[in-house]
Amino acid sequence: MMTPETAGRDLTVAMETIIIPRLAEATNEVFETMVLKTLAAGEPMRDKRQPTANVVGAIRFLGSLSGTVSFYSSDAAAREIAGALLGIAPEDANNEVPDAVGEITNMIAGALRGKLAQAGEHLMITPPSVTRGSDFMAQHFNVAARVLYPFKMDDHEVFVEIILQST
């Protein structure tokens, strides 16, 4: 069943014309301001490729569009991020990794939400959830459109995935 807001919308078009053009800017804004690193954006991927990651932050959004924003990183990249946020050495940032990745995901989703509001899309976002470990895979249902955006952060690769759902 489609929600009244998304009923009749071509979500692939919404992904291509509304979300993708704003996603790299939102992600870079967060990293440049909070992590003090400039990311190099790669080419957005639209196939079913899954990123290799040990830490995944995810936030649901609901409103004129519904779906999930996920941030994927290796453990080493996540320690770099946590260390930069907290002003501590990456090797000392272990217990801080899940919360730091949750907050980065929250800020990426929030920055994207702000940019989408300027385009007339009004969304609510949920608090983040974070999964850390190995040999796991995130699976989404009712996927109408998906993009996986790779970014280089120094020697690390991190990813932001957007799923648009039809329910």
Binding site: L86, G87, G102, N106
Partner: peptide, 12 residues
Amino acid sequence: DDSSTMRKIIAN
């Protein structure tokens, strides 16, 4: 704040 990271950033 529900994020301990953000609480530390603000405390700093």
